[in-house]
Design a binder for these strands. Structure first.
Lengths: 223, 223, 223, 223
DNA sequence: TATGAATGAGCCTTCATTCAT
DNA sequence: CATGAATGAAGGCTCATTCAT
């Protein structure tokens, strides 16, 4: 993971090469999800891709290299989240929160296994830890800015330090989601979104009537 | 090819043995904290304890075995937390929350490095994952019971499902603490306790005047 | 602690691989013959084959695996025994016995050292013990069938239980051969064949004039 | 097994010492019979004897040392064989053969597991191989002398070389017994004694009416 | 004597990485 | 480019034997 690079594989020049490379990334994800990063072996990735062992090294230097690639491919997945009209039932500033929470959780659910692997890698690899932390900070900053805005409008508790509060809220949502999708806590999706959004609002002292959370609604939204 | 016998290391029978065993556990913790679980080598642990590597196997079967022991020793550490009078300034039901949060964070801080290693091990070892999850559930159940109580007294938002809410609050505090002590977010201890307790209360809809968080107070409490 | 995968070495895909594998089997035989199974080390086998020790694991999982292979290669050797006209001098039913005894002993002599190793392995390995016993039973059954036939023709003592008698004769020949080639008893080959065949016949009560065993003959046949 | 001796344990000086030593030999036999020589560990022998690991070395230098002792104790067992009157029913020179065969087989049966272990050790240890071979030769010489005698009396086939024939007969009985008691061939004891003696006689060309082998007799003799 | 802790030689095994074809 | 064989660093583990108490 920290090996000195000896030979930097180049981008594939031919169409065939590009194809092989893609299948390796794809296979890598499958193997990572099945075995975790630590137990994934290059041989298995190659085999899964239907390629020879050595072929792997035509495109990647290390296991960490493909991993980075796989993680990168996850990011593109975020765009696939569709806005859900139910979130718009919340009063003004909270609708955005509801949407953000739902988007985060949906993406997480779809990639739960890989998210767990990312956690794994982050526990021993500085680069992955930094990437993940940077992402967390991105969330925190956005939320903090939002809090500042809402406080300015006199809608939220001004005694709270926006940065501390944003960190707490981000922590709450991300860890809750982890417990739900990685740890396997058996919780209902819509109720989770609702509860997190409701608590997020109250925690900041924002007063807004939430949308009803009745059985009818649940039947309609849940999967 | 041959008979399979358990070969379970026995408890040390003499004082000298107990001493060696203890020093191995101690050395293991040091090595784990320095190198992480994955990169810790049996040989290094033995060397750190000033013993031959064979001695390790006199007392433990695997790296995982000592690890379990080290983790167990952490639990004993929880009792060393002293109640802090500042927490009693909060109104009735929140004082307990403040105390609990502070206790959790103080213990975490004291063992931050090991907590990170536990996270690491939990990402690939089922036993450790289960232990950690069980601990989380312990917190969640306690908090849920508390919420039920407060809701019954009409002090908290009754629309919240106690279990979901408890999970969210537990997630908030534990992840916040992780970000602070493992990820290295530079946040101030007293302010963190105050913010988490404040938000915990509001999130549940509990209305209580918090103690003042002024510079004077901070100077007095922070470390 | 982790996923368990078979890791079964695959058949070599190229000529070069096949060559290496073959040389490992060959080297293994040499090392087994030199050091015995117990004292043979994987490293030595690899070294003997002029390969890195890791290469061994490309083709075999354990020492037992190559051993099985070596033993298998011995079986092919049995066909190389040429019929010897001298045996045909015996009267009808005994000629076959003489031929069988000679064939057995010649093969044994050629592979004496490996036969000893097989005995060794059979003392602690169930699989090898079963294989060897199955082979013994094969002999016993054939001999028993022969005895039944000869008894039916009124040529042999009918008071003998064919199976018991067959076991005794098989035991006599195999152990005699072992004493001669493994234990190093200094006995003459032709005289041994003659004596065993002669006693085999009389033991069953078969009356047949044996071929002359004179010094001329001996000079001619012995090695 | 071939280690240079560093410290020769002395004979125990006290009664207590003698007791400990005896229990170690006894425990060793139990462990050898259970695990075989190869898998027997000093620790297990000591534990079985209820002694500390180190105590073993007060009395023995190596595993091979106790083994030798255990084997020696077996020899004393040979005397316990009681002559069986049934054997005397055979005509003159054969009665002795019947008695010898029975004695051998009874002793073997009683110590079958240890006999197997001795075979095991003999496959890799020169000393044990020599001891066992010497024992075989002892039998062979006795039998050869007997053959010479019988041939002189004109009762046996004089074309047979006494030494070769003796080797063959010894081989027959010993291997048959091995197959029966170690390999587990399910054969009946009395029938085996009868068959071996009968074939032994005929093989040498000795003509003597054997005792009847009927069910009545069997019921009486067999165990 | 008895004890049991400490030692380390000796061997095994994995798998990322290189390289000849 | 693709292939798959070859390599060896790195660490694991066992257990006979020594030794201080």
């Amino acid at each position: 993971m920290t090996a000195i690079l000896a030979r930097v594989p180049e981008r594939p020049a031919t169409k065939r090469g590009a194809e092989t490379r893609r299948s390796l990334v794809c296979a890598a994800r499958a193997v990572f999800e099945r075995d975790g990063f630590l137990d994934a072996r290059i041989t298995d990735i190659a085999k899964e891709a239907g390629a020879a062992h050595g072929t792997f090294y035509t495109y990647f230097r290390t296991k960490g290299d493909v991993f980075r690639e796989v993680v990168r491919s996850l990011e593109e997945d975020r765009e696939h989240v569709q806005p859900n009209p139910i979130d718009d039932l919340w009063p003004k500033p909270l609708a955005a929160v509801a949407r953000a929470n739902r988007a985060y959780m949906e993406t997480y659910r779809r990639n739960a296994r890989m998210m767990a692997i990312i956690e794994q890698v982050a526990t021993f690899n500085d680069e992955m830890r930094a990437i993940r932390h940077e992402r967390t900070l991105g969330f925190v900053r956005k939320v903090a800015a939002m809090i500042v805005r809402v406080q300015a409008e006199g809608l939220a508790d001004t005694r709270l330090d926006p940065y501390y509060a944003a960190t707490a809220l981000t922590a709450m949502v991300s860890r809750f989601t982890y417990l739900m999708f990685v740890q396997g806590e058996d919780l209902e999706f819509e109720k989770a979104v609702w509860t997190l959004t409701r608590m997020w609002a109250s925690a900041l002292g924002i007063d807004g009537s939430p949308p009803p959370l009745n059985s009818k609604a649940r039947l309609q939204w849940s999967e």
